[in-house]
């Protein structure tokens, strides 16, 4: 018992210092107005201002689109990689871009999407003429999805990899078609991976901020942008913290909805 406590001490210290203390500080800050008085006005303003409510809606909406697109691309990709011979190598190739700094990747997209960028060069070459690609919703969603895809593929790939092939053989032996096997056996058994991927993509997407400015040209405003603004420009730390608290709450809601439900029918652990 004693030795267990000894092993756990650093973890408890870590969690207390770097998880609980910062969250407590954010909560504390959120009760102060810009002039430094204790108040609930930040929450009142947040819940009554059409600007913040619209921003919340926008954030959730964009995060949802990004997550769904990432899932639509990642699941088949993970499935295909899992069928390949050198799957670890292929997986490595997919993970590789995450080693590059996020900002650098975003800047690369500015080069690709700008008026004289490669994409417009190509469009002009095939006779479609140049288009405004940067600063549109579509380019923002494209870049955000691109950046999030590896975080979706990894957990799905792992759950597919862990899948016992004899279960699929059993399904076939019992007369299920390919589609039925996929629907009734593979999808339910890889649900934990999908949920983990959903968490890993949806939550960071809610608070994206650099991409909204660099690729979205601040025409897409998410909660992350507002937090950045309040801390760095407005110096209204109270309101920034309030939005932070809302994001933390949103995170808990997502975690709760995508939690692993144990002891349910159909799930083999």
């Amino acid at each position: 018992m004693k030795s267990k406590a000894a092993y756990l001490t650093p973890y408890f210290l870590w969690i207390a210092l770097f998880v609980i203390a910062p969250m407590a500080l954010i909560l504390y800050q959120s009760f102060f107005s810009i002039t430094g008085h204790f108040t609930f006005a930040n929450y009142e303003e947040y819940l009554s201002s059409s600007v913040y409510l619209k921003m919340t809606f926008n954030s959730i909406w964009y995060a949802l689109i990004i997550t769904v697109l990432a899932l639509a691309i990642s699941y088949p990709t993970a499935y295909l990689i899992n069928q390949l011979k050198n799957k670890q190598l292929w997986l490595l190739l997919i993970i590789l871009p995450t080693w590059i700094n996020l900002l650098l990747k975003t800047y690369a997209f500015i080069g690709l999407f700008s008026q004289n960028g490669s994409v417009n060069d190509f469009l002009r070459f095939v006779g479609l003429g140049s288009h405004q690609i940067l600063f549109t919703d579509a380019s923002f969603i494209f870049v955000a999805t691109y950046i999030e895809i590896p975080f979706m593929i990894l957990p799905i790939f792992n759950s597919l990899d862990e899948l016992n092939p004899s279960l699929i053989n059993a399904s076939r032996d019992l007369g299920a078609s390919n589609w039925q096997t996929f629907r009734r056996v593979i999808v339910p058994l890889t649900m934990p991976g999908v949920k983990a991927g959903f968490q890993a993509v949806f939550i960071p997407s809610l608070s994206l901020f650099m991409i909204t400015r660099l690729i979205g040209g601040n025409r897409v405003i998410t909660l992350g942008t507002a937090i950045e603004e309040h801390f760095l420009v407005t110096q209204n730390w109270g309101m920034g913290s309030t939005i932070g608290i809302i994001l933390i709450l949103a995170m808990f809601v997502v975690m709760f909805l995508t939690r692993d439900r144990k002891n349910r029918g159909g799930q083999i652990r």
């Binding site: 700008s114 004289n116 940067l134 400015r213």
Partner: peptide, 18 residues
């Protein structure tokens, strides 16, 4: 009429005729 609301990047975009 607003194409984008940006910070330092404005220099880069204007130099590139964006």
């Amino acid at each position: 009429n607003t194409k984008a609301v940006v910070a330092d990047e404005i220099k880069m975009y204007m130099e590139q005729n964006e």
